[in-house]
């Protein structure tokens, strides 16, 4: 008691109000009953994983050195020499993969339950932005390992930016810090990966959640409008998800430990280069058509996808028809994405 008084004197907040606020915002947060279903936990999963990524990423910076001479060697050092190093790296690497998987699942769920509809259009857009930010942070992170595959993925990947109209060349020059992938590229990617992108992502996550809280969780069709409070039921759910994810990522790390590959060699391009699996659909698509068509088509798709909540009402006035349009578009996108991914996976 004494300590509390001592502290409140020096940190004069209204304690009663604080407790009340805490109760209202967190402990008693009204959660719709459908959230008891595990299917609807996919929104919290990326958040939990993002937390792990921040933690493990921070730990990786204890040993990682972003220079062409030392990047690969320091990753080898972390993986092979440092106690638990392979685990931290494994968590980070599997975390990246699981984060993208869970985002895809989350988006699929949101899309098919039409949770993006008015008045939640902005949150959909923010979500899509978050998804692309996650892809970008994964790409920059992958480049940091500086092995043959990641080096060439970086070279090829950054080259595409050139195709962006008007500012493409400038953007490429900015990203690479020069005409080719070099020392500057690595430090730039490092800064992007550990400072800038996490900062931006953090901001958008914050926005995403604030908007979510202001609207309240959308209730899908067929569920009644009943609520329960955040604590303890949903709180436990988060704990379980956290424990499960950590167990899953640790197990995956033991079974499939992160490799270190062959050191990057700017003079030799490997025979088979592939980006990480989440770029497979785009990669496959770009291989099928000319670069220009590919990039513009991809950009068009991204735009439609991002602004779907506003496009949907333009297609029809009827809710029923909108739903049919959306379902068709969603299923088609899913199928095409799956086909392209599987195709790229099995074709060398």
């Amino acid at each position: 008691m004494k300590f509390k008084e001592w502290l409140l004197e020096r940190f004069p907040i209204d304690y009663e109000k604080f407790v009340e606020f805490n109760e209202k915002i967190f402990i008693k947060e009204p959660i719709p009953t459908h959230m008891k279903k595990w299917l609807f936990v996919m929104g919290a999963t990326p958040l939990i994983i993002f937390g792990f990524q921040v933690l493990t990423g921070l730990f990786l910076t204890f040993y990682f050195m972003p220079s062409p001479e030392m990047a690969y060697e320091s990753i080898r050092h972390i993986t092979e020499d440092v106690r638990m190093g392979y685990w931290i790296r494994g968590l980070h690497r599997w975390g990246a993969n699981l984060m993208i998987i869970s985002l895809l699942l989350h988006m699929t769920r949101v899309f098919f339950t039409h949770a993006y509809r008015k008045p939640r259009e902005l949150n959909w857009i923010i979500g899509v932005i978050l998804f692309f930010l996650t892809m970008t942070i994964s790409f920059t992170g992958y480049s940091l390992t500086y092995n043959q595959l990641s080096y060439w993925a970086t070279t090829v990947g950054t080259n595409m930016i050139k195709e962006v109209p008007l500012i493409g060349d400038l953007m490429l020059f900015f990203l690479r810090g020069g005409d080719v992938v070099n020392t500057n590229t690595l430090t730039r990617f490092y800064t992007l990966h550990v400072m800038i992108l996490p900062g931006i992502i953090f901001f958008f996550i914050f926005l995403h959640i604030v908007i979510l809280r202001l609207h309240g969780v959308s209730i899908p069709e067929g569920f009644e409008e009943k609520y329960y409070s955040f604590y303890p039921h949903h709180f436990y759910k988060i704990i379980i998800a956290t424990l499960f994810l950590l167990t899953l990522m640790s197990t995956l790390t033991v079974v499939l430990p992160p490799g270190i590959g062959i050191p990057a060699d700017p003079s030799v391009t490997p025979t088979h280069i592939k980006p990480e699996w989440y770029f497979f659909p785009t990669y496959r698509f770009l291989k099928m058509v000319s670069l220009h068509v590919g990039i513009y088509a991809t950009a068009a798709f991204v735009l439609v996808f991002t602004f779907w909540p506003f496009i949907e009402p333009l297609l029809s006035k009827e809710k029923r028809k909108q739903t049919i349009f959306s379902r068709t578009a969603g299923v088609l996108t899913l199928i095409i994405t799956l086909i392209l991914t599987i195709w790229e996976t099995i074709v060398i």
Partner: peptide, 13 residues
């Protein structure tokens, strides 16, 4: 256990 592993990582052997 989680924090033990983290600490082992931070402190070089």
């Amino acid at each position: 256990a989680f924090f033990r592993n983290l600490l082992l990582y931070i402190f070089p052997e």
